[in-house]
Design a protein around this nucleic acid. Structure first.
Lengths: 237, 237
DNA sequence: AGAATAGTGTCTTTCAGACATTATGTT
DNA sequence: AACATAATGTCTGAAAGACACTATTCT
């Protein structure tokens, strides 16, 4: 009953992963930053691009995303939140051959400049507004825009914002994430009541900030949470 | 400056599309139905599976999804709402070779039984509960579950529900979509006020139902709408 | 007339948003 | 003491949910 299959009868594709890596950097805390590389070879040589690369033939596509994150950005698996974004497969998006790209969204707390040592010498953080203006290679402008939109949308109804802060954080830290990602300002008091009032959203530690100006703030820990109901409302929407 | 690329140096993948096609059938109006085919050959010969097939080498992956929809289900592009779901690319999900599958979610109003004539003789509508119990081929059980979850979630904050009704419909028709997809009941009065109160969500026609029991209902037309704010609330969530 | 369904009105509760007030630290 | 920030309180308006009530058709 076993039938022999000849793989060559099926159209050959290359499968790549492309990464939209977003963080909020201490240097530019009012804006998202995205990790870009410069293409070292044709096509689009010299143009900025999203980090990424070819999936190996025996490698899970999610594993390929983590591997590229490590190779091109020096980021460990545990430092980032990674989720699949969308797959881009227009026939001529890469002029060399037929390439289908599975794009991923990676989020992390103020991530380090990747240039120090490692393979990731070509990668750098670019403020989002600047990245959107630059002429990215391939269809990477579309992928980047889709990734940012996904992040913005998911802040509303999930705990995704905690991916942008460290292991422990204050309510104000979390509020600044929302403000940065959405480009808005939020009322500190109302935000505090909202996020501390949703059961299971945040877990208070017994620690507080010290050495800062003003009243010390309680430190909270991330909680694995899927949905946030009712959502945090995005102003003017 | 032009460099020659040898495609054979990149790992060869096959790229398929798999379709989660959902509808609400008049025969089983209390439950979603999903389109399944029976596999005619190994692997998983005889097992039920999601419709789908190989992407052609010069074909956009979205075009491949529409083509399979036509070939395997006899459904025209204009009859369905189609959106990309997720890509599944575990190395051994298909034992024959390395296959990356781009899954799509297709929704339509009470779609016809596809067996009548055409290529789509193998396809049939299966009540969702029954499909979830059957041992689907490959990782299609996961894909189906993800597709259903996507549909359920998007009803809340988008106008996606109108994809399940015809060109014109009553508020009660739309309410039954929500009730069927969510498996709940909704208060008719509150639902009516809600959906007619959101500006731009529905467009009233000058026509009404006739020949039905009870007071005639105004017929509405679908409106291209992206977001629905505030959302329709899903009970108990 | 009675049943059935469409659509509106009313009341209560919840919660977002504006903004004042209290709490607790640093300079 | 002055200032800064955290956290809570108060008020208002909007909207959801429960449910009563009116409207309009068919049998």
């Amino acid at each position: 009953m076993a039938v022999r299959y000849d793989p060559s009868q099926f159209p050959p594709f290359a499968v790549t992963v492309d990464l939209v890596v977003l963080t909020i950097r201490d240097e530019t805390p009012d804006e998202l930053s995205v990790l870009l590389v410069d293409r070292g070879s044709a096509p689009h040589k010299g143009r900025p691009a999203l980090p990424g690369g070819f999936t190996h033939v025996d490698e899970d596509i999610e594993a390929a995303a983590y591997r590229e994150l490590e190779e091109e950005a020096g980021l460990q698996r545990r430092e980032v939140h990674l989720e699949q974004l969308r797959t881009y497969g227009a026939p001529r998006r890469d002029p060399r051959m037929r390439v289908v790209s599975v794009a991923w969204l990676a989020l992390g707390a103020s991530l380090p400049e990747p240039t120090a040592g490692s393979d990731a010498a070509g990668a750098r953080w670019v403020p989002l507004s600047q990245a959107l203006e630059s002429r990215l290679a391939f269809d990477h402008a579309t992928i980047l825009a889709d990734g940012v939109e996904r992040a913005r949308a998911k802040l509303e109804y999930t705990g995704l914002a905690t991916a942008f802060v460290g292991r422990t954080f204050t309510v104000a830290d979390l509020r600044r994430v929302y403000e940065t990602v959405w480009g808005t300002t939020l009322d500190p008091g109302n935000f505090h009541r909202k996020v501390t009032g949703v059961p299971g959203f945040l877990q208070a530690t017994d620690q507080q900030t010290a050495g800062t100006r003003g009243r010390p703030a309680v430190l909270y820990r991330r909680v694995r949470t899927t949905s946030l109901n009712p959502p945090v409302m995005r102003p003017g929407s």
